[in-house]
């Protein structure tokens, strides 16, 4: 079938042409090249496969062994929310690792091997090069995420599990953003550092720190200030909560939990060492223990813990590494 006859191909061709002709998309050929090149790397396929299997596994288990039932809220029917609850602790640590492997070599490897000289003898600024790399590699990251989500849907559709579309799609969106954030993070380091090895060590090191130690950082800092600076308990909880939310992993998790629970407050409470004090003294609410767990009613969430703020903290991990990486890359000798 020729390109003219195939409507999908024709549509893609039109999109391709219109992006190409856009004034702000000088980086576009780089992103295409980047996608074509990276998509042929076997490592990325191995990692993506592992991710897809682990990501869709809860759906399979829920379907065939009805394990998901225990995650459903009492009395409610089994929905995809149970799946999301199961998939979240898998995606949260695993997706950053996949994204880092996709992103870390983006610029440092080309710089080491010398192909960067070919790229930069073409009419691109270094900023456009970085933009093209970011778009192309982010598209690669979205492949396992999208395939994982579609696999899940395919498994769930014929089953008796109900699809809660709104929360499922929000979860899908948050997970895509999460993957892109870590891709950008690794690319930023790849632009700033000299070798791919260093970029990988730095990005994996920071990721492990975020994953393993960051949750203690807020509490530790709070304790330290309370011991030595005489701050009150509420201030201490503020420190704890705020520092926790600065981690992209915590930010992603709390955002998804918020979607499942329909309110941001409960998911934020889980990030503090004392949900009761946080609810009653910091947020001015009342903690009630209900069938489905603790509920903080009549509380007002300060703006720095709102949904928009947390999305902002998550996106900081995209913007700051890219901007800092660009700044270093722009000013260095290749």
């Amino acid at each position: 079938m020729s390109a003219e006859q195939n409507p999908i191909k024709r549509f893609l061709g039109d999109v391709d042409t219109s992006i190409k002709n856009s004034e702000f998309a000088d980086w576009y050929p780089i992103s295409k090249k980047e996608f074509r090149d990276t998509v042929r790397s076997p490592w990325i396929w191995v990692l993506s496969f592992i991710f897809i299997v682990l990501f869709a596994l809860p759906a399979l288990l829920g379907l065939y062994f009805n394990i998901g039932q225990q995650f459903a809220e009492a009395g409610a029917s089994l929905t995809t929310d149970a799946y999301v609850r199961f998939a979240l602790p898998i995606a949260a640590p695993l997706l950053p690792a996949v994204a880092i492997v996709i992103g870390y070599a983006a610029i440092a490897r080309e710089s080491e091997r010398g192909s960067l000289k070919i790229l930069l003898s073409l009419p691109y600024t270094r900023g456009e090069l970085l933009a093209g790399k970011f778009v192309g590699r982010s598209a690669i990251t979205l492949i396992p995420v999208t395939v994982g989500l579609l696999t899940t849907l395919l498994v769930i559709l014929p089953s008796e599990i109900e699809i809660a579309w709104e929360s499922f799609l929000l979860f899908a969106l948050a997970t895509m953003v999460y993957g892109v954030v870590f891709t950008a993070f690794a690319i930023g380091l790849s632009a700033a550092l000299k070798t791919a090895r260093r970029a990988m060590a730095a990005s994996l090191g920071i990721y492990v720190y975020l994953q393993v130690f960051w949750s203690n950082l807020g509490a530790g800092l709070g304790n330290l200030l309370s011991d030595h600076a005489n701050i009150g308990e509420v201030t201490q909880l503020h420190v704890e909560l705020f520092v926790s939310l600065l981690s992209p992993i915590a930010a992603y998790r709390t955002l998804v939990q918020e979607v499942l629970q329909g309110t941001p407050i409960r998911s934020r409470l889980l990030l503090t060492s004392s949900p009761q004090v946080t609810c009653e003294e910091m947020l001015g609410g009342t903690l009630e223990v209900t069938q489905t767990g603790a509920e903080c009613t009549n509380a007002a969430l300060p703006p720095q813990y709102s949904t928009v703020a947390v999305i902002g903290y998550l996106l900081l991990w995209l913007v700051v590494p890219l901007v800092a990486g660009y700044y270093v890359f722009e000013n260095k000798d290749l």
């Binding site: 090249k33 090149d37 010398g114 192909s115 000289k117 070919i118 003898s121 691109y124």
Partner: peptide, 26 residues
Amino acid sequence: GVLPEGYDVYDRLTGRQHLSFVIESK
């Protein structure tokens, strides 16, 4: 047009893909 020193090509891309990329870039 530049033939740089110490360059490297993209191992996973074909000659045609290399050329198309440059044609599109320029």
